[in-house]
């Protein structure tokens, strides 16, 4: 079993490696994760501490300059990485989990359960997602937990749809019937048999969702709906906005950081897509 998994990972890596852009994306991702994990330790500056004069250009003391309150932008970037990644990953995991469960139940059992679950899913799709996220955060008051939850709430329906489609397509196949004949329980069939087959496309969409989640978080922070106790990249853009005219780099730096991160995640997602879905490998 372990050998099988290991060889699976190795061949996955071989396929993934063929896409140079995806490898580049992975490298950037690794750098960002490292920066988020160790940056604040190696560069122990409190991102909220007003250390210098406001709005200074990059210098030896402040490698990326200071913001409108004289706070170190580099420190903000490093601490912000943690928040952006944390919220992005946590929200995507939550959305994937909910989406998978809903999609799997709907696709496997069909009938009225399918109808109810899918109508609910459609219903969430009809509400503009960013508006819904803004609503939820404004109503329950901004905190990391609420922001993560709001992003998950607006993201799960697409996973549910995809998962349902996968489960429906596997449901009718011979091997599932065979399993049933062998007396396996529904839960066993869903978890042990269908799930591993249905997972690859879900993993791809989940990885792309991390990127969207980071963008959504930055939009919320920009509107002033971020958690006031933490620093995030979107918040930093919002801070720089007031001095756009005199210090454009203040919002450009976190903006480019978000761009690179989201780009890297997308590249990895595409690479995974090609590696996991052999049908599409030809592209």
């Amino acid at each position: 079993m372990t050998v099988q998994v290991a060889s699976g990972v190795v061949s996955l890596w071989h396929r993934f490696r063929r896409n140079r852009a995806a490898v580049l994306g992975l490298a950037i991702m690794a750098l960002i994760v490292l920066a988020a994990a160790f940056g604040p330790l190696l560069y122990p500056v409190d991102p909220f501490d007003m250390l210098g004069r406001p709005s200074t250009v990059p210098s030896q003391r402040f490698p990326l300059g200071t913001d409108v309150s004289g706070r170190d932008i580099l420190a903000g970037l490093l601490h912000g990485a943690r928040v952006s990644l944390l919220i992005g990953i946590a929200a995507s995991l939550a959305a994937t989990l909910v989406g998978l469960v809903v999609g799997a139940l709907a696709g496997y059992f069909g009938g009225w359960l399918d109808a109810v679950l899918m109508r609910t899913t459609d219903f969430f799709l009809t509400i503009p997602s960013f508006v819904l996220a803004v609503l939820i955060v404004a109503i329950f008051q901004p905190s990391v937990l609420i922001i993560t939850a709001s992003i998950a709430v607006v993201s799960w329906p697409s996973v549910a749809r995809l998962a349902r489609a996968e489960f429906v397509s596997h449901q009718g196949r011979d091997y599932v019937d065979a399993c049933r004949a062998m007396g396996m329980s529904n839960a066993e069939i869903m978890l042990r048999q269908i799930l591993p087959n249905a997972l690859p496309p879900v993993i791809v969409i989940a990885s792309l969702m991390v990127a969207t989640a980071i963008l959504t978080e930055s939009g919320l922070s920009f509107l002033g709906l971020g958690d006031p106790n933490i620093i995030s990249w979107g918040y930093m853009i919002g801070v720089g906005r007031t001095v756009l005219r005199t210090a454009w780099w203040m919002s450009a730096i976190p903006g480019v950081t978000i761009l690179i991160t989201v780009l890297a995640i997308n590249l990895v997602g595409e690479g995974l897509n090609e590696a996991l879905n052999p049908r599409m490998r030809q592209r």
Partner: peptide, 30 residues
Amino acid sequence: HRSWTDTALSVLALVVYATPQFWLGLMLIV
């Protein structure tokens, strides 16, 4: 497909896709 046009377009699309809209707007104003 698979020409440099294709690659360039794909990369460009990805970059735009990854840009926060409000930030892009601010930069366009500047």
